[in-house]
Amino acid sequence: MTAIQELIKEIKKLKPIPAVINRIIEAVDQPGSSMDEIAAIIKYDPAVTAMLLKTCNSAFFGLKNPAESVEEAAMFLGTDQIVELVLLKSGAAIMTGKQEGYGLQEGAMWKYAVSSALIAKQVARQLSMENINTIFTAALLKDLGKIILDGVVADKIQKIDQLVVENNFSFQEAEKQVIGIDHAELGAMIAKMWKFSPRMVKIIRNHHLQDESMQAEKDIIVVYLADCICMMLGLAVGADALSYQFHTQAMDALGLDAEGVSRIMASFTADMDDVEALLEIL
């Protein structure tokens, strides 16, 4: 069995995200689907509903009266917000562990994922994009591949680092060279096996914009930019650190100059207390 076949076998051992989450992700991908339809999907899953109500009724949201149904939670917080909470909670179930190969302590990958998702959402809103929930979810789950690749990266980190330091490879290029597959490619495989939409798979596959032909696709660029901002802010960054390629032309495609990117960093950082509080309840 090849190393890649071994990794694919590992994917099958991962606890997949619940089917209801997949249905929500599918629904948020559909341009015509309403938030009410999505709320209806949530309400028919008792476990997800219970988790959602517990989270909505935590001190973080400061509701005067506790929400007792999905409808009430949607009324108090907005359907957009409850969908986001469900997605975050489902992500937490698979991404809160430690990834020692990547130098990530327990919870670090999760903090990075949530921060990326919140930044991507902020940028998507600023640019008045339509598929905000898809962008949010893709940014949240883009590093899924690291969970599987972690053990191999731990064994090969010296070779990977050597290529990064001596040959100017990006960390992703070095993963591909040393292991035969990189975390974005593997993440896309997981997303495909879990039956995510082709769009979501494509964003996850290309979130480092390694393929130049992707540098005109705005939703992919937004997820890429969110990742770059997390690297620059040093938010729970691991062994790969800032060892990825920066693509100025992608910023141009979004119509963002250097000041525009700095403003997004400033505005996210100004709300950092809220982000930390949100992480506490997830």
Binding site: N168, S243, Y244, Q245, F246, T248, D257, A258
Partner: peptide, 8 residues
Amino acid sequence: IMNQSEPH
């Protein structure tokens, strides 16, 4: 980030 040149 690698190749993050001016003005970025």
